[in-house]
Every structure is written in C-alpha cells, then in structure tokens.
Write a protein that binds this DNA or RNA. Structure first.
Lengths: 144, 144
DNA sequence: ATGGTCGCCGACTAAAAGAGTCGGACAAGC
DNA sequence: GCTTGTCCGACTCTTTTAGTCGGCGACCAT
C-alpha cells in the first residue's frame, strides 16, 4: 500500500538514536529497544543487517554495542532504507526479472519511473544529521 | 516495501485505457482484461471500486461497460490511487488511530511527513491526460 | 579461568496483507 | 425470455511482514 515496513522504520529510529549518543561510546541493542519499546531480538536483527552493510560497526562483549561507521551527515536515509529493504521499486514491473506481459504496450512505465526517481532522490538527499535539525528540505516543486 | 499494489497498478492501466478508448462508447471489463492479460474478475472488482468513487461510470447490459465520468485532464493519478488503496501513509504511525508508543520522542515524524507530502503532491499533479503525452513533469528539485 | 554480558546468526512460527476465485443476482438489449 | 455483461460479497491461496527461539562466540572483570 505504498508503505515502509517496520524494519525500515525501526532501523531509522535506531540509527538516528545511535547518531545522537555514540560520542560517549557504543550504544547497546537493549538500550535502544527499551527506549523505543521495540522487541529486542527484532531490533538486533535489523542492526545486524545495518552492520553487515557497513553503516554501523559492532563492538562485542560487555560494554559492547553499536556505533556509526561514518559521520551522521554522511549517511543518508536512502542508504539506510536500501540496506534494510533492498532496492526501491514502487511497482513490481520495474524490478529486474519482471515478466510483465505488457512490456510493450504499458504507457505507465515512464511516468512511474519518474515518480520513483523523485522519491529516491529525495531520500538520498536527506542525511541523518538533517533529521535532528529543523531545516529539512521544505517542499518539492515540479519543474514543468 | 514502499510499493504500490497491483490493484493500483491494474486500476491505472485500465482507467488509462478507458480514457483512450471511450470516445466511441463504453469499454468492457473483458476487453481490458484481455488487452492487459489481467484476471477478469479481479479487474472487475477494481473497476467497481473506481465506479463507486465516481471516477468512472458503468453501463449495464450487453454493449455495456465503463466510461470516464470526467475528462482525462481532470482526473489525477492521486485520485485513482486513493480511490483504490485509501489514504496514502508511508509509515503506519502517521495513520489515524496509531498507538505508536513514541509519539513524543520520535524525531522521524516531521521529515517523514514531508516526504509523504511530496509524493502526494506529485501524484495529485499528474493527470490521466499527461500519461499519454510525453511532457510528464521532468524531474523534481528540492527547494533548500 | 570462568561466568555473565552482549552481539551473531539461522531457523522457526504467527499474523496480516495481497492476489486471485467462485457463485449468484440484477439490468438491458436482442 | 435468453444472452451478454455488470454488480457484489464471500471465500481461498500465497506472499510478505513481524516477531520468537535457541545456540554460538567474543569480550571483559573479577
């Protein structure tokens, strides 16, 4: 229904929280899970995924936890979402290996691709750092 | 996963097809279903929904079918999608009656709302008529 | 060295949404 | 009155998402 999954949702909350708190050391899964009332094991899986993609780094053992691998301004929302959900395709027929029987006739593909490009661009333009501050890009205009 | 359902997909194809062909009379579900290789009953349900929302009008009996209720330029993609999928919410916590335990602390809400507003605006700006022509709004720019 | 804390990982279950089907009722034209 | 076609609700099947469980290995302090 054109909606992000909770994976993306939780992941963004968590990485944002880490961004705000990792200057004093790593942040444990448990702490984040409690803070946001997210099932701990679920969040753990999400963070593991982010770690595997290199967006955050893990520290094992007691006093362990997660920290950012880059500075907040250098991590975009788009990266986080793609790390968790894979490439963005707002319609299935734009995927690789789509067997849409209407490849030829379908006139929707072009405009849909544009919409998708716009969304992707928007997500890639917004960094973690901008989540905190108030100067989120204001509103989008369509260049006619 | 941030994706439109096939309902929306099929619905757009169909209404666009109707827009192109209804000057000569109504268009039957069967014809559209065959044209796009969509299960006929499924498409029927989708069109019923569009009819109920007043975007298209139905004509019963033989030689019956569907026609647009307005001119193509006056029907937007956004309308069609909302008619089929309900209001657009890219994250569940922006819905009515969301019991997100983080209403207070969550700093994601504002930026997410912006992204959503941008998408909605984009969909509402694009009309059926523009699907056919090539002058789809080119690319979006972010007003910083 | 050892035990508790914490991240790592894969397999599993449960719930919800999506996609598609079936069967019957009704309407209009031939 | 029969055929063509729409209307409509209930039902099933499949896929995705959400969440759970249990064992493993790293790390640090005592």
């Amino acid at each position: 229904m054109l909606r992000f999954t909770k994976r993306a949702d939780y992941g963004l909350m968590a990485i944002h929280y880490i961004a705000l708190h990792d200057d004093l050391g790593t942040v444990s899964v448990k702490r984040i899970a409690e803070e946001f009332a997210i099932p701990q094991e679920l969040l753990a899986k999400i963070l593991q995924r982010l770690a595997k993609q290199g967006l955050i780094v893990s520290q094992n053992g007691p006093k362990g936890g997660y920290g950012l691998s880059r500075r907040p301004a250098e991590i975009t929302i788009g990266e986080v979402i793609r790390a968790l959900e894979g490439p963005i395709n707002i319609v299935s027929c734009l995927e690789e290996s789509s067997d849409c029987p209407q490849m030829e006739r379908c006139t929707l593909r072009r405009p849909v691709r544009k919409i998708q490009a716009a969304i992707t661009h928007m997500l890639d333009t917004m960094s973690l750092a901008e989540l905190t501050s108030d100067d989120v890009p204001e509103i989008l205009t369509i260049k006619a």
